[in-house]
């Protein structure tokens, strides 16, 4: 009877957990194994690090890698930086606070592709922004902003789409801080800023990290924003991976697999670095 008891939770885990583990293992295994195989011109498949060598020697790959790392970092940090003060502001309800939090959450309801379209439409030659700039006499002729080379559009979209997500994650933990704790801090003579540094930041560290990680992984692996609104002279990692697969015939899968493994690595390392950085900053601030 007791063995059945101890086994029960594990058996219950199977339907939910097993599909996840099976698929993830298969996908990661497939990516890693493809990355170390190479098909030569005659169609012979062999175990080789050739795909890694070719990829690492390619400037384009490193530019895609750094680009995705940059978009991921900027997207995550800016989203959180905008969401955090708002979450703090809306910590205690006041007249109109429900309205504001509903407005902030609205972009979650808009599909990323729709957002990308709205943005491109907004900044296009006939878009509102240009009509306004010309109408106000700030520009003689409409300015070309579509697919801008600095990827400002992609960052704007990432922040637009992810800031509400960060807000949701952060506002939960900000609200969970009890007034007692804050009042106690106030009684001990801590000012507004002191309370923020010593009490609020440390208590919300976990959700700050969670928000950074989730947004970083999404933004670094982005394909659609980049394809619709990104610079045409650069590829994101996901785009580069798809291009490697389609443009390289027999070797395509191996090259794409290397990019895939590197993208997974980027997601992992980037998440750890951002989380670590956040922890370091919060600890510093708390001193």
């Amino acid at each position: 009877m007791s063995s059945r008891r101890t086994l029960a939770p594990y058996l219950l885990l199977i339907p939910g957990l097993a599909p996840i583990i099976v698929l993830m293992t298969l996908v990661i295994g497939m990516a890693v194994s493809q990355s170390v195989t190479w098909t030569d011109v005659s169609g012979k498949v062999s175990l080789s690090l050739e795909a890694w060598r070719v990829t690492f020697e390619s400037d384009q790959f490193w530019r895609a890698f750094l680009y995705s790392a940059r978009i991921g970092t900027l997207g995550a940090i800016l989203s959180v930086a905008f969401a955090y003060p708002v979450a703090l502001w809306l910590r205690r309800p006041f007249a109109g606070s429900d309205l504001v939090s509903a407005l902030i959450k609205a972009p979650i309801l808009v599909h990323g592709l729709v957002a990308a379209f709205l943005y491109v439409n907004f900044v296009s030659f006939q878009g509102f922004l240009n009509v306004a700039l010309v109408g106000l006499g700030l520009a003689a002729r409409p300015i070309r902003m579509q697919n801008d080379p600095y990827a400002i559009g992609v960052v704007v979209l990432q922040v637009w789409k992810n800031m509400p997500l960060a807000f949701l994650i952060l506002s939960g933990s900000v609200r969970a801080i009890s007034d007692d704790v804050l009042n106690a801090a106030r009684d001990l003579g801590a000012g507004t800023f002191g309370r923020l540094r010593r009490v609020v930041l440390p208590l919300t560290l976990r959700s700050l990290q969670a928000a950074l990680i989730i947004i970083f992984i999404g933004a670094a692996g982005d394909y659609t924003f980049q394809a619709v609104a990104g610079p045409t002279s650069l590829n994101s990692m996901a785009q580069f991976m798809v291009r490697m697969e389609t443009d390289n015939g027999l070797q395509g899968v191996s090259l794409a697999a290397v990019v895939a493994v590197m993208l997974m690595g980027l997601s992992l390392c980037g998440s750890i670095l951002l989380a670590g950085l956040m922890q370091f900053l919060v600890k510093r601030a708390g001193r």
């Binding site: 939910g16 996840i20 493809q34 670094a220």
Partner: peptide, 29 residues
């Protein structure tokens, strides 16, 4: 039960996987 926290982290795996990576190799599978 023992290992509950670890199991909960494991369920989050798909969220950490870039979806295009998943999609491309999922098709191969």
């Amino acid at each position: 039960f023992r290992g509950k926290a670890a199991a909960q982290v494991l369920t989050l795996l798909p969220l950490a996987m870039p979806l295009f990576v998943l999609a491309i190799f999922y098709v191969t599978i």
